[in-house]
Design a protein around this nucleic acid. Structure first.
Lengths: 105, 105
DNA sequence: CGTATAGTTGGATGTATGTCAAACAGTTAG
DNA sequence: CTAACTGTTTGACATACATCCAACTATACG
């Protein structure tokens, strides 16, 4: 169970988080993680409309920004929201984004 | 008092707002506007460490995203946060970002 | 071992962005 | 009118990014 480089909670930068959340595909991924909890990359990336390598690129963006964490188990990689860490660092931010993401167009 | 193109409240897109807020210089501008209310571009752009044309570019990003509005008066242009519009569209989002922006490093 | 599964990496490409410098435009003051 | 003030626009440039495809790695299963 190897862990990839994740930023420590105190090293999470607001601008990086906002940039990570400013892409429609990533926002969709984050919404799924918020709704379903931990999921594999392939489940999270299902029907996103992008190539799997593109999805992988987005996971990396989200991970580097501190928005998600990943855990390897066998040949699957489980990703989950760092909800508590984000709340500790930026109270209410993630929830307001998640709420906003559900708004009708 | 010519008004530049501002998106209607219902046309403000979450991803655009997040992208607009994901730059350190723009976050600083937004923080100033939140603290002081309406200000001129030159006041808002004072001591930002960027060229005035760069600041102008950022005002445009913020305006196009629906984060600020601008009002021309004589040779000065006053800019202000669209706080109410953003709150109406994405409740709590701006406040949580502003709070987060004040966090210690 | 050989094959399928789960993701990542690298190359290629087009687009966007942040920045400065210089030129430009509109407004106001002498 | 001429000069100063307030911003914007354009050009140039380097970097970043979203995307696809193809090749690669690592693990699991017969």
């Amino acid at each position: 169970m190897r862990l990839l480089p994740h930023p420590a909670t105190e090293d999470i930068q607001l601008t990086e988080v906002l940039k990570a959340l400013s892409d429609p595909v990533r926002l969709l991924i984050v919404g799924r993680l918020a709704a379903h909890g931990e999921m594999t990359c392939s489940t999270a990336g299902d029907d996103l409309g992008v190539h799997k390598s593109t999805a992988s690129h987005h996971y990396r963006m989200l991970r580097d920004a501190g928005v998600i964490m990943s855990r390897q188990e066998g040949r699957k990689k489980y990703i989950s929201l760092r909800h508590d860490d984000l709340d500790a660092r930026f109270p209410g931010l993630l929830d307001s984004v998640l709420t906003a993401a559900h708004e009708p167009v």
